[in-house]
Nucleic acid binder design. Structure first.
Lengths: 228, 228
DNA sequence: GTCTATAGCTTGATAGAC
DNA sequence: GTCTATCAAGCTATAGAC
């Protein structure tokens, strides 16, 4: 009579589900969606391949679930940082560099202290962003709301910026940021070991200032051009 | 007795080989290496699947041949632009923005006037750059020499820059540049049509100045920090 | 919830006719 | 140089036992 409510899955089932998500996240990050098989994911998770269908429906739905899981967490974190600096700023709002830092800093923090899962997730995002197959639709779904929130804060502080300059700034920031977290080892080779892909702290130290300077320079050029 | 020399392939064979390269380039760019089958490539090329083995050895070797074909052309073009601005510059060398433009402008030019093949190639490069599976090794093979040549020109003009700042600048430039040419349609959605992924001219107008400002700002911060 | 078994395809590669 | 035929292996997905 007293059945376990179906909405409250058993502890074991939940653990299996999470194992599959973890394994998929890791392998998709390493080899891309098409480079990984359901069997490989199940093996990595120590579970049966049939359970992918049981829990998610299929390979593609598992992929979506991987993206879903951390997307919401990341963006809540970003919103919290943005609201924090807005609360402490004067009526003109936080500075461009504070805003850009609020956008990038959560990635650093989660990458450094969140464990390998977060690192894999960011690496996966790096690939998806640059792939026509996913980069438009999937990325928009998860990140357009936070991007618009962030660009609105920038525009409030720098009202003379044009829409085009604002969106291209986001584009350049996005490209630099996701390549960072892809951690491909490229810069390690190029620099002969002087810089390391995994040295996220070195990037966080440089990226916000770099992007802010690019952004403000773009705005200045536009204004100079319009005066002439 | 008078055989056709084996080193001089027939016109028809050469055309088939090129068709396979074109088809592979297009499909790899759209769906990544693992997302494309040899059969699909052959169909797109209007050739028989067995010819992939005949001309290239296998799928992976075809992939390498796709990267090889345009890599050398692109980098010769970049070297030519760099040498041109160096020839016209004073003893202090060309400005940072001229140097960065020499690095990015050939992509714009080839993307705009080189046909769909070049567009596919750049899109493919965008994906590879952000994928751990290829982004370290393959990219280094084709682009480390040109990257070092370019960074050397920057260092000559701004000798006080540190090695680390130089390589991270390349990293940020690289990320922004390859996302641009991936043309995923993301910014079209985000901006509600105000900006278009395919509007390479708008990017070329903004990217060199953006990166230059970021670079010079990084150098200035370093100097300010060391004085304190 | 988990697993076995397997259906039904598709894969990359190749041997050999033309 | 091109194509047919085919192989062994691997794929996703699913039906059904436990």
């Amino acid at each position: 009579m007293a059945d376990t409510p179906p909405s409250r899955p058993s502890r074991r089932g939940e653990r299996t589900r999470e194992s599959l998500l973890d394994a998929a996240e890791k392998l998709f990050a390493e080899m891309s969606f098409h480079g990984v098989t359901v069997r490989a994911i199940a093996k990595e998770a120590g579970a049966d391949p049939a359970l992918v269908a049981y829990y998610f429906g299929g390979k593609r739905e598992l992929f979506d679930a991987v993206l879903e899981r951390r997307g919401a967490v990341l963006n809540r974190y970003r919103i919290a940082e943005l609201e924090e600096i807005e609360a402490h700023a004067g009526p003109e709002g936080p500075s461009p560099e504070e805003i850009i830092t609020a956008f990038t800093h959560p990635l650093l923090e989660l990458s450094a202290t969140g464990g390998d899962g977060w690192k894999s997730y960011f690496s996966l995002i790096g690939q998806i962003t640059n792939t026509p197959e996913w980069g438009g639709e999937v990325m928009s779904k998860y990140f357009d709301p936070i991007a618009n929130r962030f660009l609105e804060a920038l525009r409030k502080r720098v009202p003379e910026v044009t829409k085009e300059d604002l969106y291209w700034t986001y584009h350049f920031l996005s490209g630099a940021l996701v390549l960072t977290y892809a951690e491909t080892g490229r810069i390690d080779r190029l620099s002969g070991g002087v810089c390391r892909s995994t040295d996220i702290a070195s990037i966080q130290e440089r990226l916000p200032g770099f992007i802010t300077a690019g952004f403000l320079n773009m705005v200045e050029r536009r204004k100079a051009k319009e005066q002439s």
